[in-house]
Each structure stands twice: as C-alpha cells, then as structure tokens.
Design a protein around this nucleic acid. Structure first.
Length: 137
DNA sequence: GCCAACGTTGGC
DNA sequence: GCCAACGTTGGC
C-alpha cells in the first residue's frame, strides 16, 4: 500500500466534484508533467491519496483511493500522457492546511512543503498518519 | 497581481 | 549536450 497526494485547483476540479462522482470515480486527467505521470504509473488499485486544494484553500480536504491503473489520458491524443482513476473515500473532518504542515516539524521533508509545484506526489506512511491525525481522523 | 521555482523547448 | 528563453504553477 502506497500513499499519494493529488493537487487540484478547486475552481477546475474540486472535492465537491469528486464527491459527486461517488464510487464511479473519475480520471485524474490533464497532467502534463513527467514526474507526476511517473508517480501515477506506480500506483496500484486501492492505494490511498490525499485530495489537496491549491490556490484559495491550500489544504488537504479529503481522501481518495485509486480505482483504475494508469491508462491513456482521454483528454489528449499524445500517447506520452497517462492517468489513473480515483474515487472519493471520505472527507477530512478538519481540513489540514499547508500552514499546519509547514508548522509541524515532522512534516518538514514533505514534498508538499518543499516542491509546491508537483501536482501528484508520494506521501510517506508516517506523513500519512500525521496528516490523518491533524485532520481529525 | 506579482514573483519565485521549476520544467520544457529550441538554437547552437 | 549545454544553456538561454519561455511558459506554467502556486504561494503570498
């Protein structure tokens, strides 16, 4: 079991949109970055991920799981780009903000804190537990 | 709205 | 294969 973090602008695709899809899930398409794509290719069915809102909120707002392995991105003919499908699992009782992550020394090595621009990131198991706790789970 | 960080592109 | 120019992302 691996853990990940998916970043999205709420104005483009937000947590409410993801929730509305329910168990059917949705393609995490539109990624045009090799590192992010490579991370998606490493994902397995059932891997868990945080759903992070960038820009306005800057907070982890929910938990998702991978429901389909990497496959060609349907929004482009360019065969370089793959994406996985994810479905909403649960909402965070309390959103965990970027500010909280930065303030917690245990999270100082998180990709989210150090490489703000990567849209699909790995999360370590300890980071996962810390953020779940901060989020009230 | 600005700017820093970073990735990609293209000329040489 | 290097590096300058450019575009994009995301925090502030």
């Amino acid at each position: 079991m691996a853990y990940w973090l998916f970043k999205s602008e709420p104005s483009t695709w937000g947590w409410q949109d993801q929730l509305a899809k329910g168990d059917a899930g949705e393609e995490w398409d539109g990624v045009r970055n090799y590192q992010a794509r490579n991370n998606m290719r490493l994902m397995k069915i059932g891997d868990k991920g945080f759903f992070y809102h960038s820009q306005t909120e800057k907070a982890v707002v929910g938990i998702v799981e991978v429901s389909a392995l990497a496959h060609p991105d349907s929004t482009t003919d360019d065969e370089r780009w793959d994406c996985v499908d994810i479905r909403a699992v649960k909402s965070m009782p309390k959103p965990v903000t970027l500010e909280m992550c930065k303030a917690d020394l245990r999270l100082k090595d998180m990709v989210l804190v150090n490489n703000t621009r990567l849209s699909v990131q790995p999360v370590s198991e300890s980071e996962w537990r810390i953020i779940c706790t901060l989020g009230g789970l």
